[in-house]
Amino acid sequence: MKIGVLALQGAFREHIVSLEALGVSPVAVRLPEQMTDCVGLVIPGGESTAIGKLMETYGFYDAVAQQHGAGMAVWGTCAGAILIAHEVLDALPEQRSLDLMDISVRRNAYGRQVESFEADLDIDGLDGGDFRGVFIRAPWIESVGEGVEVLARHDGHIVAARQDDLLATTFHPELTGDPRMHRYFVEAVVGR
């Protein structure tokens, strides 16, 4: 099973390590052709503006949309959740998203870095108790369309959601060492 991790910028190495621990062989994707044959793609946390500009320059917008149309599952964490959203609130005027998932995401929703936090989350579909959510200058999911399943909330705000072969989390499972969210993506979303 070939799963790509978009490696333009951000915490891609941690996603690669987390996936390797599950026995998947992930590939670092820096150019669109490196996604060939991928059944899943992780768009990691980082700066959504920086990743978005590099995606634009290197032709990722069309390539990801096309491969998703052909069946590739996509998981966006934090900046990645912003990049796959239908609508981005508090975005830069020219900021583009992939518009794959029917969610509306608010950038830097909690404020600046001094407001970054961690908290326990009760996530639908994950066994074994609470999951430690690490939120770094995080967005939240302001609203979801029909057909989007809310998986977790924190203080009333949606922080994890799924729509068929699309998964969005506003926190960082790759920083915790807890493999359950990655296993969920590989088994329940990619392997649906």
Partner: peptide, 18 residues
């Protein structure tokens, strides 16, 4: 919890490759 070591080092992780 705010201001934990993990959210401090975590922001630096998000800047990597940049």
């Amino acid at each position: 919890m705010i201001g934990t070591l993990r959210v401090k080092t975590g922001l630096a992780e998000m800047l990597k490759g940049g």
